[in-house]
Design a protein around this nucleic acid. Structure first.
Lengths: 110, 110
DNA sequence: CCCATGATTCGATGATACTGGAAATGTCGA
DNA sequence: TCGACATTTCCAGTATCATCGAATCATGGG
């Protein structure tokens, strides 16, 4: 993950519709969801949804695969983890910064 | 963290300059950095930097405090953790999704 | 081959964001 | 009080993004 990729990913998520799509796919897990099901669930016109799906795909946050006539989209969890890692990189210059790194505390965290 | 707040935060980070500012502050830790030092480090005109700092502040990602003539900015780590939590919420519908959560499962679900 | 279905691309329009110099604001030392 | 310093606000020009109906592409069944 480099700066350009991170900016692309963040820009892709910085929209209410795309964020909703992405979270839906995150919750759907690796099997993903077809475009039509997403459009219905979110109440978006097909062309608008397609625009947003393309945006997320271009940013590397989701993947696309065809299954017969449907195109199935799924979240790319590696990309998300890479993004999170990039944001917190060298957090606090190595010093403790409590919850951002969650050290070796065995307390149940939220 | 709700959807609107997340969109604001992501939008604030979705810019090369602001992302650089934010990462600089994340690495600087809780003590933060004065605007002038950030401007110099990043080679940004003061007015442009001020615009970006205001954007990040409005999104709740960084905090501002005055120290004599300087305005010190610092990353708000709670906000970042809230954002990350929001993105990964209900990840995979509760099923295993490997690296996104603590790797505790031994089933190969995928 | 032809049609139905699922999804993308095209195109025009309106809205929003980024930039940076100049001027204004707030703060401190002498 | 005056001047120097640190930073923000103002402003206008440019550029990029979001929307969605219609047209188009891709696939599978009869």
């Amino acid at each position: 993950m480099n700066t350009d990729a991170a900016v692309d990913a963040l820009g892709a998520l910085a929209n209410a519709h795309r964020l909703a799509v992405y979270r839906l796919l995150v919750q759907a897990g690796p099997e993903g969801k077809p475009a039509g099901a997403i459009a219905e669930k979110l109440g978006l016109p097909a062309s608008s949804l397609s625009f947003h799906l393309a945006h997320l795909t271009r940013a590397g946050l989701i993947t696309q695969r065809r299954e017969s006539r449907s195109l199935i989209y799924a979240a790319d969890f590696d990309a998300m983890n890479g993004l999170v890692g990039f944001l917190t990189e060298k957090c606090c210059g190595g010093r403790s910064c409590a919850p951002a790194e969650k050290p070796k505390q065995k307390r149940s965290a939220a």
